[in-house]
Design a protein around this nucleic acid. Structure first.
Lengths: 348, 348
DNA sequence: CTGAAAGCGCTTACAG
DNA sequence: CTGAAAGCGCTTACAG
């Protein structure tokens, strides 16, 4: 399977080559490519033709060195150490898709990097001028990285974080209104007649988005004179395995429950398996609601009711906010309203 | 939720600042940072200390402009137009993870871009010096983009493609040995006593990887004096929806079959749902085997037997091959051996 | 509207 | 082992 080597040398075309061919100065070529209005229409035409004929592209490094802007954003996707590449949360992958597209719409390139939460972050993208700003994405112990956020703010780094929006946080955050999402789930389950709702997922300030989902659901129950029960809460990180294990744990407690609100779709799908293995029917014996709105929810068995986060909007907002920040325009943290997608797992 | 603006101006630290602080010339600073062996140990120490104290980072654009290397690779993920961000094939996302990590290991950054197969590609990353080379990833009609590959070769662009490896292809490809993978599936189903094996997925030269999987399975059956039956082949692209629809189509044909070999895990999972709806038991009535080894296979109902592609190895090999090509070292196309992971969907 | 010129921050022969 | 100097390919005041 050896391929013949193509010797074909690339001779770099520069703006000077274009200038010669179009019979103008190099400065004028640069003006045309920057879309300057100062150029005569006929001159512009000649330059553009030469550009096309020689397939000229502006050298990014020369341009960026001169202008001091990279035209690039960096996405830091941090995750707990997982030995297996494939275990990236599908929700984040969907965010990655929408961020990539938003970047393209705004004429920027996107550098992607996976970081361990424990590592020193490669937050030097901006110091080395590789990127104009950073997008931070990922779950993980909030306490473990709040100090890192503070350091970024101190250094004057431009960044936007996806996550729970809380007062007094260092820097700007864009996130789902997790409390409202939890309330959606809670009200829905109440309406279906459920009373004893188990929660699968950490519910502490170390995992603020999960905690807010828990509290939102609790608030909805309280409106009805009920509430979440701590005996029905089991910690779980956002994997199917953890959801499965948490459900087994819950079943072993032998406390009655008639519904499960899982802090993520992955957890919910793990729960569906554990319930099935235990011989419990969904939704007749136990209703299940997930969170995220990942595509796999639709194909779970039974199809999973889930609180949907609008990843398209989220990606656009992250990029837009970051670019405003880079341009020194005022920015603010924003929470996005989630929606509920009802399917068979809650008797839809 | 308005955040106070941090006025904090960034004053760029340059190598000249380091030089002054360390009492050496700017050239020496550059040598230290490039790891040149020509520098006196004590001088090096002084420079490194100044670098640390001022948190200096080499300016990527200045460096790249001078050396004419970007230190960056670009990943073009092309896909058929899907309105929904979340519908990226999980297999490719797993590849993205492993490519990102391989890049980091090799000290390169990764630009990521999603392209429509129909669009003009943003293959100008190299022309504009944004990247030293391209990694192409994505399914899609092979005929539709063979000509694009030829153009890349003509232009002398450095690129490596993930996909079916075929003689006479333009450029270098790294891919799974799909024929061998199909044979693994075929032999496994034969051993379990299945004889009439349906195939879900395009089986034409327009989709070479699917076609090779089909032919591999066919070859395994022929060794046993059997073969695949065209009446049991249904086209499907790699989505759950398509797998579901294809299975309904297959059932409507009313030709007996005792197993399904799906060209991808997504197709297989769609098939599982259609079979269940039709009241058929898996694996008792119909065995099902998928392809890719995505994490969702393990959590399908029943857990899905699948032909596993080694994405970690694939990512490493793609990056390594591309970097060799950039350095003008000889490179060749390579097929990676898949493995079979047997689970309950085929009576495991 | 256009050109000549300075300069962005590095790397690397060239001298010593 | 170190420094002075050229130059990578642009953008953008400054003159005209």
């Amino acid at each position: 399977m050896t391929e013949p080597r193509r010797p074909r040398k690339k001779t770099r075309v520069t703006s000077l080559d274009i200038a010669h061919r179009a019979g103008v100065s190099q400065a004028t070529v640069s003006r045309v490519l920057a879309g300057s209005p100062l150029v005569n229409a006929e001159t512009r035409r000649r330059v553009e033709q030469a550009v096309r004929e020689l397939n000229y592209k502006v050298d990014r490094h020369a341009s960026s060195l001169r202008t001091q802007r990279a035209g690039t954003l960096a996405l830091l996707l941090f995750e707990d150490p997982t030995p297996d590449d494939s275990h990236i949360n599908p929700f984040f992958l969907s965010m990655l898709g929408s961020i990539t597209r938003a970047c393209a719409r705004h004429g920027h390139d996107l550098l992607v990097s996976f970081q361990q939460l424990s590592d020193d972050w490669h937050a030097d993208y901006e110091d080395s001028m590789k990127a104009d700003g950073l997008i931070l994405l990922g779950y993980g112990d909030y306490l473990a990285y709040e100090s890192k956020l503070e350091k970024l703010v101190e250094q004057g780094t431009h960044f936007v974080r996806w996550g729970q929006v809380q007062p007094g946080q260092p820097g700007i955050s864009i996130g789902c209104d997790n409390h409202a999402g939890g309330a959606l789930a809670g009200r829905h389950l109440l309406e279906r007649g459920h009373r004893r709702i188990a929660f699968l997922g950490d519910a502490s300030s170390r995992f603020p988005e999960f905690f807010a989902r828990y509290q939102g659901c609790d608030a909805a129950l309280r409106e009805a004179g009920l509430g979440m029960l701590r005996e029905l809460q089991v910690d779980a990180d956002s994997t199917e395995e953890a959801g499965y294990a948490a459900t087994c744990n819950l079943l072993a407690r032998d406390k009655p429950f008639d519904a499960i609100f899982a802090a993520s779709d992955l957890i919910a799908i793990g729960a569906l398996h554990a319930l099935k293995e235990a011989g419990l029917r969904v939704p007749q014996d136990v209703a299940v609601v997930g969170f995220d709105g990942t595509p796999m929810a639709r194909f779970a068995d039974p199809p999973l009711t889930t609180v949907v986060q609008d990843t398209s909007r989220a990606g656009e907002l992250l990029v837009e906010t970051l670019l405003r920040q880079v341009r020194d325009q005022p920015v603010r943290s924003v929470m996005l309203a989630p929606t509920l997608e009802v399917r068979a797992s809650s008797g839809g």
